[in-house]
Each structure stands twice: as C-alpha cells, then as structure tokens.
Design a protein around this nucleic acid. Structure first.
Length: 534
DNA sequence: GGTACTATGAATCCGTAC
DNA sequence: GTACGGATTCATAGTACC
C-alpha cells in the first residue's frame, strides 16, 4: 500500500507534527488501498488479546519517530505484488497469500489463515487470525527464534500497527447486533435435544476440516459478552454452539454452550437419573418450604455461597412478620434465595448448599472434592467451575459404541475431572488420559478419583496448557498412540456475568486461554493427520 | 499465612405494554 | 418497533479472624 508523499505532507499539515496517532488515522482515511484497508471494523471479532498485549508493549514508544518508522515499514510491506506481466491472472486468494507473505508472514500460517477465514476474508481478518495464532503459540518465541532481527522488528511493528488500528476503530452497533443475531440463544435452551423435551428442528452440517477421526468438545458459559461465541465458533471450524441448560438434566440450571464435532443421534442418559426438582433433591426441605416460594429448580451453582449474615437477615425479616410475610418481604427473601440458591431447612430458616450437595447436583460422587488439601472455599470454587456430568455425559454418550475397547483423551483445563468422570460413568474405558490442569488441588482430586475408581489406563498429569508445545504434543501422541478426544472448557472468569471486575471477554487474562485450547486442538489434528499419512 | 466472610453492579436476555 | 422492568449470572478484591 504505502502512503503517497503528498498524503503524508497533507496529514502532517492538518494535524501537526506532534500527533502521530492523528497523522496515521488521517493517512488511513486517505488511503484507497483495496486490500489493506478494505475491511470494516465490524466485519470480524478480532482476537483482541494479542492486540492489547502488544499494545501495552509497544505504545511506550509512541513517538513521532516510532510511527514514522512504522509507516516506513508499511510502505514496503503493504505493497501488493504486481502481477501485470504474468500470463494468468492471480486469484484473490493467491493475491492475499502473496500479500501476507510480503508482510513477513510465513506461507504456512498465511495459507491456514486464508483457509480458515474463508475466501471472503479481508487482510485485516487474516492478520488478526495469524496474530491470535501467534499469541496462542507464545509470540515471544517467534521473536526469539527469528533469525533476522529486522524481520523480528518488522513483526513487532506490524502487530503494534494492528493494535493501534483496532484501538481506534469505531464500533458499528448495527453490524455487531447483526452478528449476535446469528448466535441467538435458543429458547428453550435444549441444544440439539434433551430428554423429555420436544426435539428441536435443526440442521447440522459439519465442515470437512472439523470432521473426525479426532473428536473434540469445548464448553463455556452461554451468557458470554456479545460476540464471544461468534469468535469461539469462528476458531472452531465455524461450528455453531449447542446451547444447553442443565436444568433439563438435574435440579439446577447451568446455561452452557458446547462446540463439538460429535454425532448427535442416539444419545442416551446416565443412570440413575438424578432428582429433577429441588424438593426431590432435598426431601427434608419440603416440610419447611413456604407456598409462596415457587421454585422447582435451583439457579446456576457458582463459585461462592451466601454469607451467614444473609441467611440471618432473612430469618429476622420473616420472624418479624405475623403469619404469612407481606409481599415486600416475600420479594426480598425470594431475591436472595434465587441469587444464592438457598434452601429451606426450618421454620423461617434458609441455608446455603454444602459442597457435597454441589457435588451430587453436578453429578459427581459425593465427597469427590473432599480432602487432598482442598478446603471449603476451594471446593466451592472448583465445583462452581465444573461440568454438569449428566449433561456432558449425554453428549459424550455417542462415543460409547465407537470406542468399545477404550478411549484416549486429552483433557484440557481438567479442573476436578468432569470429562473423565463423565466418560467413566458412561462405562467407556479410559485407556490413556493426558490431563492438563493448573491447580495442584484439582490435580490431587483427579489423581485421587483415578485411584479410587481403579482405573486401568494411564493418567498423565500436566500443569499448564500454555507450556504444552507442539513438540510436547508430538511426544505425548507418540507415547499414547494418538488421541481420540480433545475435551475441555476454558476459563470463564472474564466471560461470566457475575464478574463485576474484569468481564473482559476473550481479551481477559484467563479467558484468553481459549486460544490455547484452539492451538492445541489444531496441533493435535495436524500431528495426527501427518502420522496417518506416514 | 491461610481461611472464611462480605460488599461490590452491569451485561444480557426476555416478556410485556404501548 | 421501542421502552421498560424482571430475572439471571462457572467472580473479584478487600477485610476480619484464627
């Protein structure tokens, strides 16, 4: 692309020499480059994490000199290859490939980006895609490994430029909403079908590159900030999420999105079927349950529970009433009960759930998280972050006839072993499980469960998904003979509605680890595909 | 130092009325 | 179509206590 000298002069004249940002913005508005600037900010949901991190790193240098150099570099890098002399006109994809390579990207990463983002993708989308991939792989090592320091500098500047550009984009609400409409949550939230509910009409066609033999299963909160599921879906082969509320499987709600490439026919439930209502799950509470508390299902079990002060305030509020409490008191009590999942344990007395009650509601063995250095707070946190076993097992049940002799699993963000427990409860033998979990306490829980259930297979425990490199994956695949299933739910901290502090979407520190899920899945597919060829 | 406890809204969806 | 209100939400950071 480059910026014509007259444009630069004009931009400097309009904005003064001091404001590099304004100069650059003005130059961009002048530019009529068909490729480099063709995309609108609303056309994609960029993997913002790379943008901010690089931004933090690079904006310290936001001097005129820096941007002058940056522009200078782009004068070279953004030039489209000229092919007027060639006999056959290059296709749009070829042009994009050459353009990306000219920007300093490798052929492989450029090709993958074009393939994944589709033929209509813009250069912006492609560079975003590659940038996210680089972040997921640990962008630092790209720089360390770069043989040519100039190339390395160029890459940093390019990313800084992208950062700057994204930060200065003006959101287009109309288009954003348009995207979200595509990811509308189903009502009722039954995904591709749940027991005892009418089967929803849906059409599921998996893209070719998403098909097995490697199966994958990804989970996260359904009610994520706008655009998050669009991004996740785009990275995971454009598969539409299956949004399911676990209230159709047990006595508590748990609205989650699942992206997977599993078959969806002939699913079956785990037995025994758990209690479907609060009253069935807590029979002793029936005696004290007031008629005006009409709840039959608990809300989502979260990572913390109400304080003793809350339940005491409720008791006092009710005891101050003669007979049935007035509507205003009922409303207050019900709000607190719904917010904190309180159950009735006596006259005018409500209580929080205990960790073992969390375990049973979520489908884990009672005392699954007890002991092993886990305190009460830890248990609530781990359980609140976990799968609902009956729901996940329903989805995974289709694997049972496919793997009668056992399955080899890569379990990412394992937590307290929701995936492993689900497969075990389905009586699918666990041949080998590579479990990656950052929390020592959670790893203890999984290891303890593994031993208690007399698993015959091999459990390999790893700590950090970010350290799970391509090379390490090759070793593991060689060691276990290949994975059949990659499963996991990446952290929701920055997506969850009750996070009042850092609900930053996939840009958040923890939730950005989704890109590691995608990176690892992609690596496994690639490695195993190559193994098949050889 | 470890653990338990407590205060802290906003984003989003959905139903309803107009 | 729009405005409004109700309902829901895999949490975080600071503080008190032992």
């Amino acid at each position: 692309m480059g910026f014509p000298e007259e444009h630069v002069v004009k931009a400097v004249k309009e904005n003064g020499e001091e404001s590099a940002d304004l100069i650059l913005e003005t130059l961009l508005t002048y530019s009529a480059s068909p490729l480099a600037l063709q995309s609108s900010p609303e056309e994609d949901q960029p993997p913002i994490s790379i943008i901010k991190r690089e931004s933090e790193e690079e904006t310290d240098q936001s001097s005129s000199d820096y941007y002058e150099n940056l522009l200078e570099d782009f004068s070279d890098a953004d030039s489209l290859p000229e092919d007027e002399d060639t006999m056959t006109p290059l296709s749009d994809n070829d042009n994009k490939l050459l353009f990306l390579m000219d920007m300093g990207y490798d052929m492989d990463e450029s090709s993958i980006a074009i393939e994944r983002c589709g033929p209509d993708s813009s250069i912006d989308q492609l560079t975003d895609f590659i940038s996210a991939a680089q972040l997921a792989k640990g962008s630092d090592h790209l720089y360390r490994d770069a043989e040519d320091e100039d190339k390395c500098q160029k890459k940093r500047k390019r990313l800084a430029y992208l950062s700057w550009k994204k930060k200065n984009q003006r959101p287009n609400k109309k288009i954003c909403n348009g995207e979200d409409e595509l990811m509308k949550l189903p009502k009722p939230m039954v995904g591709f079908g749940v027991p005892n509910q009418p089967y929803p009409a849906f059409q599921r066609t998996l893209p070719e590159d998403a098909l097995g033999p490697l199966y994958f299963y990804y989970e996260n909160v359904a009610l994520a900030p706008k655009g998050v599921w669009n991004t996740i879906s785009r990275y995971l082969y454009d598969i539409h999420p299956e949004f399911v509320d676990s209230k159709f499987f047990c006595a508590c709600a748990r609205k989650r999105g699942y992206i997977h490439n599993l078959p969806v026919g002939n699913r079956f439930r785990l037995l025994p079927i758990p209690a479907a209502t609060i009253q069935d799950a807590f029979p002793l509470s029936k005696k004290w349950w007031p008629a005006w508390d009409t709840r039959t299902k608990l809300n989502c079990l979260k990572t913390t529970v109400a304080s003793a002060k809350t339940t005491e305030k409720i008791r006092k509020a009710l005891e101050d009433c003669d007979g049935d409490p007035p509507l205003v008191v009922q409303k207050y009590v019900m709000e607190e009960c719904r917010k904190w999942n309180l159950v009735w344990i006596g006259k005018n007395r409500v209580a929080t759930l205990e960790p073992d009650e969390f375990e049973v509601l979520l489908g884990f063995p009672k005392n699954h998280t007890r002991g092993g250095g886990s305190n009460r707070t830890d248990r609530f946190k781990s359980l609140g972050n976990s799968f609902q076993i009956d729901t996940v097992a329903y989805h995974l049940s289709v694997l049972k006839p496919l793997f009668p002799t056992g399955i080899t699993v890569l379990s990412l963000f394992s937590g307290i072993g929701g995936a492993e427990v689900s497969l075990h409860r389905l009586n699918i033998p666990l041949k080998s499980v590579v479990s990656v979990e950052i929390s020592q306490v959670n790893r203890n829980i999984v290891r303890s469960w593994w031993e208690q259930t007399n698993q015959r297979g091999c459990l390999i425990e790893l700590e950090d998904v970010q350290l799970l490199s391509h090379e390490r994956l090759e070793q593991l695949i060689h060691s276990v003979g290949g994975f059949d299933l990659v499963i996991g739910g990446s952290p929701c901290n920055n997506l969850a509605g009750c996070n009042r502090v850092s609900r930053d979407g996939l840009d958040g520190k923890e939730s950005a680890l989704f890109f590691d899920y995608w990176r690892i899945l992609d690596s496994v597919k690639c490695i195993q595909k190559n193994r098949q060829k050889n």
